[in-house]
């Protein structure tokens, strides 16, 4: 069997005396859809930040596509084929939707698994437009991103991540605050991406979305991973139920 696309082992992250992550192992197979669950403050975002390089892990290692990356800066990791969206959308507000996407095309545009690395010169308005259409923002391509609605901002976050041509996409609460119809829209988008070969980690509180989407679920509670396996058995796990519902 092929090596996993992402393998984080023994990740420790402390903030002062507080241990946010305590020896966490987390891996993603190539082409897999993984759900990452956990109550607020359980360390999900910290783990994502350690994987993408926004934070440095204190111990453990992160291996991405057979390369150790936990001492690389974020943009270097992104260029190796990793992308993320933010829990709270962070658009480049002075730019239009299309220009937002062009930034990622210009600077990140990494390869799909087998393709040769694209040069930055390939990045152009056509590519950006294609992605804008894919996420359904084509009517707003030339609008300032600062004036978008919540759901459009979420789509823009995804579009910008897609523009990086990632092999692994980490969607950090890409659907928080959306209506059911909108959630389904984003879910369909993520599934299409996955079918195109992108491994996806979904961090989400919307249970039905995770159950529908994920092939495997990992659960973090207070900085420790307490469960990791197929969705049905994880949900049935008494520890998980205790963490979510109390005793």
């Amino acid at each position: 069997m092929a090596e996993p696309i992402l393998s984080a082992t023994g990740i420790v992250k402390t903030f002062g005396g507080f241990t946010a992550l305590d020896q966490v192992d987390f891996s993603v197979e190539r082409g897999e859809r993984v759900g990452l669950l956990g109550p607020n403050g359980s360390g999900k975002s910290t783990l994502v930040n350690c994987i993408t390089g926004t934070l440095r892990n204190d111990a453990g290692q992160v291996i991405f596509a057979d390369e150790r990356i936990d001492r690389l800066s974020t943009h270097q990791r992104i260029r190796r084929g990793m992308a993320r969206t933010f829990q709270i959308p962070r658009p480049f507000h002075s730019m239009t939707v299309r220009e937002n996407i062009e930034i990622a095309l210009l600077y990140a545009a990494g390869p799909a698994d087998s393709e040769p690395r694209r040069t930055t010169h390939d990045a152009n308005a056509d590519d950006a437009m294609r992605i804008v259409e894919e996420v359904g923002l084509h009517k707003k391509a030339d609008e300032r991103s600062g004036s978008l609605t919540q759901v459009d901002l979420r789509k823009l976050e995804l579009a910008r991540a897609m523009a990086a041509h990632p092999r692994l996409l980490i969607a950090d609460e890409a659907m928080a605050g959306l209506s059911t119809g909108e959630v389904d829209e984003i879910l369909a988008l993520l599934l299409r991406l996955n079918q195109a070969g992108v491994s996806i980690v979904m961090i989400e509180h919307i249970m039905y979305a995770v159950m529908k989407f994920a092939q495997r679920i990992a659960v973090l509670v207070a900085g420790r991973k307490i469960a990791d396996g197929d969705p049905q058995s994880v949900i049935a796990n008494p520890d998980v139920q205790k963490a979510y519902l109390g005793e």
Binding site: T52, T54, S73, T74, H75, Q76, I78, R79, A83, R84, F86, R90, P91, F92, H93, S94, M95, E99, E102, I103, A104, L106, Y107, A108, A109, G110, T120, R160, A163, A164
Partner: peptide, 25 residues
């Protein structure tokens, strides 16, 4: 230039720029 667009991304949101592959530093 490409440089200028990267700089604009930094101005708008440095973390998001870094996460879009911009070598902010």
């Amino acid at each position: 230039s490409r440089l200028g667009r990267g700089l604009a991304a930094i101005r708008d949101d440095e973390t998001a720029a870094e996460c879009s592959g911009v070598p902010t530093l």
